[in-house]
């Protein structure tokens, strides 16, 4: 038992170590990656919020991730429903087909999307990136939704119908609220997957739809700007906030008013 605890501690330290470097570095007075920082100030933060080459990609990333999450859910909820609930010709194929983006190396997908999206002139647009990210997020979101639906008691829908709710009201009053945890997880996954995606974005985001990871990659490649530590710190804070929010929601769900 103590060995397990020691092991857990080692893993935690290992995972947490970068944070211990990155957070102090975001407050550095240096203009490069010097560590430990020679002095501390908040100038790097001011720079991040005033430089459009940093804050515009951030806004792009949020817009694209949100669009990806919505589009992925709009595709995956009905698709998972069809595949889990109904027996139809080509069901096994449909199930497989929706998982295939997982099997292709991302770099291959990126080149393919670049070629494909150039025909309708969507390269370098938000919609183009959203479409590509949706393809990438669909397999896992699909697996999450299918698992949620499999655990969903069909008699709940029947009970709603016997209570006089038609197909739509059954979905909104019963199916959706009961499946909400699964939907939230699938949507969150699609959001984070898109927010974090670099390879495809490098190919198709261009300048107008440039995303934060793309900008970070360029920053690392071209200069040694400590602003990247600011971005990392804020992403870290974002993740902590999301985690707390989710824990809070769960607590409310389980304890009820």
């Amino acid at each position: 038992m103590p060995i397990v605890i020691i092991f857990a501690l080692i893993v935690t330290v290992f995972l947490f170590a970068p944070v211990l470097i990155v957070v102090p570095m975001s407050f550095t007075t240096s203009q490069s990656y010097a560590f430990p920082p020679p002095g501390y100030w908040t100038g790097q933060y001011a720079k991040y919020f005033s430089d459009p080459t940093w804050y515009l990609p951030t806004i792009n990333s949020f817009t694209i991730a949100l669009g990806t999450a919505i589009l992925t859910l709009a595709l995956v909820i009905p698709a998972a429903y069809a595949v889990v609930r109904y027996r139809f010709k080509g069901r096994a194929f449909a199930n497989m087909f929706l998982i295939t983006p997982l099997l292709v190396p991302t770099i291959i997908s990126a080149i393919a999307y670049y070629k494909y999206l150039s025909y309708p002139k969507l390269v370098g647009t938000h919609i183009g990136v959203i479409l590509a990210h949706t393809c990438l997020a669909t397999p896992v979101a699909m697996l999450i939704m299918a698992a949620a639906l499999k655990g969903y008691d069909r008699n709940l829908e029947r009970a709603a119908m016997m209570s006089g709710a038609g197909v739509l009201r059954t979905f909104f009053y019963v199916t959706f609220p009961v499946l909400r945890p699964g939907i939230v997880v699938a949507g969150l996954f699609a959001f984070l997957n898109s927010f974090d995606e670099t390879v495809v974005s490098l190919f198709i985001a261009g300048r107008a739809a440039s995303t934060l990871p793309k900008r970070m990659f360029e920053s690392i490649q071209l200069d040694t700007d400590p602003v990247i530590a600011v971005v990392s710190t804020m992403l870290f804070l974002l993740v902590i906030c999301m985690f707390l929010l989710q824990a809070l929601l769960r607590r409310r769900q389980f304890h009820g008013s």
Binding site: D153, N155, L156, R158, A159, A160, V174, P177, V178
Partner: peptide, 8 residues
């Protein structure tokens, strides 16, 4: 229903 099917 057998498994009650109450809305959780």
């Amino acid at each position: 229903f057998q498994n009650y099917a109450l809305f959780p």
